[in-house]
């Protein structure tokens, strides 16, 4: 147990370092540049970085990747410890592990996003959320952090897939929430006509908006899949696929909220500002579904 907890600790510090580096990256000096015409970013965003920013950005990425590897190691070590203990390995079997897994998924998503779109400014927000998830996990009391054997109701193969799929969708929504915050900041800066170099590393509003939408479009079907897997499990374990237990109801509520979002985007005026506010709201609902329900409402899903 001590071994995995040590690795989780290391992950926490690495993510903190990565977050600090990404923030430093935003503040680093950039050569002034002509504004690219809206909607047509000139090449990669990295082209805008000065020497300092470029270096900071590289280190930040490196530390993030390293942190993610550490996170992976921590989870596999935990899986191994679980296996030795109780014969099941799912390293997302209690609140602490679930949160570590969510931060793992958020960071993985971020690294893929950075690799694909080459926008480092997002790191300060999304790695930030991953770090907060990890940090909140490590603040849980010790007895929540250890790998107690699963109670009989949870001891099943379904936990591997149902929980991991659902948690991954939460990570996608977290990403969208981070992008929403970023959108609002950038928008405010533009409205005020701020020429602070801080915002210059940000992609243009349209790109932020579009990426947020994409994140939700990944999370939305995944959450549906997760909920359905939960229903299949319930059908297998509890004698009915849907029992309106608080956790499953809340995940349905979250899903409906995002359902409204994707349909709203087809009507005029639901892009940009409103979509950003809505994505943040949706993420808050996810947090409630993930945390609030476990601690405030009772039901079959209360892990601890």
């Amino acid at each position: 147990m001590a071994r995995s907890l040590f690795l989780f600790d290391m992950t926490f510090w690495l993510y903190l370092a990565a977050l600090g580096l990404y923030i430093a990256y935003l503040f680093a000096r950039r050569p002034t540049m002509e504004l690219a015409p809206a909607g047509h970013p000139s090449g990669g965003y990295e082209d805008r970085d000065g020497a300092w920013a470029a270096q900071l950005g590289q280190v930040a990425t490196l530390v993030t990747v390293f942190g993610w590897i550490m996170n992976t190691l921590a989870l596999t070590t935990r899986a191994y410890e679980r296996m030795e203990h109780s014969g099941t390995f799912a390293p997302w079997s209690n609140q602490f592990e679930a949160m570590s897994y969510v931060s793992w998924a958020i960071i993985l998503g971020y690294v893929l996003l950075e690799y694909r779109y080459r926008i480092k400014a997002i790191g300060a927000f999304v790695v930030g959320i991953g770090f907060i998830a990890m940090g909140a996990a490590s603040l849980l009391p010790y007895r929540y952090q250890t790998a107690e054997p699963l109670v009989p109701a949870l001891n099943s193969y379904w936990i591997y897939i149902h929980v991991s799929v659902t948690l991954t969708s939460y990570a996608a929504f977290a990403m969208a929430g981070g992008l929403g915050i970023m959108y609002l900041l950038k928008e405010r800066a533009e409205r005020k006509g701020s020429r602070s170099r801080f915002y210059e590393a940000f992609p243009d509003l349209e790109t932020i908006d579009e990426l947020g939408y994409k994140a939700i479009m990944i999370g939305f079907p995944m959450l549906a899949f997760g909920i359905i897997l939960g229903a299949m499990w319930a059908n297998y374990a509890w004698g009915g696929y849907w029992s309106w237990d608080p956790k499953e109801t809340w995940s349905l509520i979250v899903w409906l909220i995002y359902g409204a979002y994707i349909h709203a985007r087809m009507t005029r005026g639901w892009e940009g500002h409103r979509a950003a506010v809505y994505a943040i709201f949706g993420f808050l609902m996810v947090i409630f579904c993930f945390w609030g329900v476990n601690f405030l409402l009772s039901g079959l899903h209360a892990y601890a």
């Binding site: 809340w250 359902g259 409204a260 009507t267």
Partner: peptide
């Protein structure tokens, strides 16, 4: 789509009652 949005939100809001 307006009706769809209304329904999504209405179902989400009323569903919270039973969890509280």
């Amino acid at each position: 789509i307006k009706l769809a949005m209304f329904l999504f939100i209405a179902i989400a809001m009323t569903a919270t009652i039973g969890t509280v």
